[in-house]
Amino acid sequence: MAAATDDAGDSNEMIRVVSSDGEHFEMPEAAANLSLVLRHMIEDDCADAAGIPLAVVAAKPLAKIVDYCTKHAAKSSGLTIEEAEELKRFDAEFIEVDTDMLYDLLVAADFMGVEGLSKLAVQRTADLIKGKTPEQNRETFGIVNDFTPEEEEEICKENEWAFQITKPPSRLC
């Protein structure tokens, strides 16, 4: 059980979910409602003691997602500035993960329809790519360069406009 049970939000009811590898988790209903898929399941009375099965979400990312939803559900409305700041810090720490976990979160948040988490993970990935050379990006994301040097050069030439780092400012938009 990885669910945080403090701050249950509006609803005291606990929702059980089951990861693809059979691990059970629990979170307050308000937290589960942050996931579009879970919310629809709850509305359709599919949330029972056996738990809602999530066929494509493994235990490791699911534990993270339960944490995320529980935290955000507890602090969803009427935030003070301090609470908003705290939530921001939580998000920043939360998403400091390796790329494997990042992929898992991207896919799982997309699948479960957790909008805030999707945004967070997507922005994190974009930030990792931003301002890097192709070689740096290959290293970060484990991409194997299977081009010959000639091919690589050819591609740069094909899309020359995008590979020129500096552009005359008169043509700026």
């Binding site: 997507v122 790519i129 931003k130 301002g131 299977d146 899309n159 995008a162 590979f163």
Partner: peptide
């Protein structure tokens, strides 16, 4: 969604990754 958050040059430059 990820690539939409980048400069279009950076998006096009992904073509050279692999």
């Amino acid at each position: 969604n990820i690539l939409s958050r980048l400069h279009i040059y950076e998006v096009v430059r992904t073509s050279v990754l692999s």
